[in-house]
C-alpha cells in the first residue's frame, strides 16, 4: 500500500518561501494568484495491506517525525 503525505504550514504561520513564489509569479506576468503556500510531499511504500492499520501507523509517523505539529498540518492519502 502506498501513502502520500502532504505537509503544509498552518494557516497564520508566515511562509516566506510561498511569498517568494507569489512574487516571482507576479514578476513573470501571471496575474490573479491570490496567494502561494509551499509544502512537502512524502511518499511511503508500506508493507501493510489493511487501510485502517496503515492509517494509524502513518498518523503516528507524522506525529512523531514527518510533521512538526507546532507549525505544520499533514494530510494522508492511502492507495
Amino acid at each position: 500500500m502506498k501513502a502520500r503525505i502532504t505537509v503544509t504550514l498552518k494557516t497564520g504561520v508566515l511562509d516566506p518561501q510561498g511569498k517568494a513564489i507569489e512574487h516571482a509569479l507576479d514578476g513573470l506576468g501571471f496575474e490573479g494568484v491570490n496567494s502561494a503556500r509551499q509544502g512537502k510531499l512524502i511518499e511511503l511504500d508500506l508493507e501493510e495491506t489493511d487501510k485502517d492499520t496503515a492509517m494509524a501507523q502513518v498518523t503516528q509517523m507524522c506525529e512523531k517525525l514527518i510533521a512538526n505539529t507546532v507549525i505544520e498540518n499533514y494530510a494522508i492519502e492511502l492507495e
Binding site: 504561520v13 516566506p16 507549525i71
Partner: peptide, 11 residues
C-alpha cells in the same frame, strides 16, 4: 523547549 525555528523571514 516550546515553539519552532522556521526559515528566516527574508529566506
Amino acid at each position: 523547549l516550546p515553539g519552532a525555528l522556521m526559515r528566516n523571514r527574508d529566506i
